[in-house]
Amino acid sequence: MQVKPKQRRRHSAAFKADVLVACAEPGASIAAVALAFKLNDNLVHQWRRGRGAPKALGVPSLGIAEAPPRFIELTVASAMLPAPAPPASPPSPTSETIALEFKYGTLGASVTWPVSAAADCAARLREVLR
């Protein structure tokens, strides 16, 4: 008995466009969309990145690399963090500072803190990273 290898399925540009539109819905999960269309979620991720995407239909690639960078302001509830103690003396413009940069994909945040208040910086970071 011979076992025939599975042949690759070919998907039309219209089918790919339908899948990508379903992925663009608010709150849509790639895994759920792939399951609904009986596809592997890795294949759908490839289509979203532009590999095999139907360009003839005008469906834009939804890849992260093409998203324009934007600033997202984060506010921290005052109940979560204790109020910082006022510094003994204001830091001079030439004093040393702690500079932290956090990046996640295209998003980023920068924090500068005076070295004289390093303990306060560490305490804040512990609270935020919990």
Score class of each variant (00 low, 15 high):
69 P>E: 14
35 L>S: 13
65 A>P: 00
36 A>K: 12
49 R>N: 12
53 A>P: 01
43 L>S: 07
44 V>I: 04
48 R>Y: 05
70 R>N: 13
75 T>Y: 04
48 R>V: 03
74 L>V: 11
60 P>L: 14
60 P>A: 13
62 L>T: 07
58 G>V: 10
27 G>W: 04
44 V>S: 00
76 V>L: 14
58 G>C: 14
27 G>N: 09
84 P>K: 12
29 S>G: 03
55 K>A: 10
77 A>D: 11
39 L>H: 08
62 L>D: 07
49 R>S: 03
84 P>S: 12
33 V>Q: 03
33 V>F: 00
38 K>S: 05
53 A>F: 03
30 I>E: 00
51 R>W: 08
74 L>G: 02
40 N>H: 09
37 F>I: 02
87 P>H: 15
70 R>P: 04
50 G>C: 01
82 P>L: 15
52 G>Q: 02
49 R>I: 05
77 A>M: 08
69 P>K: 12
50 G>Y: 02
41 D>L: 00
85 A>Q: 13
29 S>I: 01
39 L>M: 10
57 L>M: 10
35 L>C: 09
68 P>Y: 09
87 P>L: 11
30 I>N: 02
30 I>D: 04
72 I>T: 15
66 E>T: 06
77 A>F: 01
65 A>F: 07
74 L>E: 11
39 L>T: 02
59 V>N: 01
57 L>C: 03
63 G>L: 05
28 A>N: 12
36 A>G: 10
31 A>Y: 05
88 A>V: 12
73 E>N: 10
57 L>G: 14
89 S>T: 15
72 I>K: 10
67 A>R: 12
69 P>H: 10
89 S>D: 10
57 L>R: 14
72 I>R: 13
60 P>D: 11
64 I>E: 14
38 K>E: 14
81 L>N: 02
43 L>G: 01
76 V>M: 13
32 A>L: 09
62 L>Y: 03
28 A>V: 11
89 S>Q: 09
56 A>Q: 14
91 P>G: 15
66 E>H: 12
75 T>L: 12
42 N>R: 15
79 A>V: 10
71 F>A: 02
54 P>D: 05
79 A>K: 07
37 F>D: 05
70 R>K: 13
41 D>C: 01
62 L>V: 06
28 A>W: 06
50 G>M: 01
59 V>R: 03
42 N>I: 05
68 P>E: 11
82 P>Y: 13
32 A>E: 10
28 A>L: 04
39 L>K: 02
31 A>K: 07
90 P>T: 15
72 I>Q: 12
88 A>D: 15
86 P>W: 07
44 V>N: 02
73 E>V: 06
63 G>H: 05
74 L>F: 05
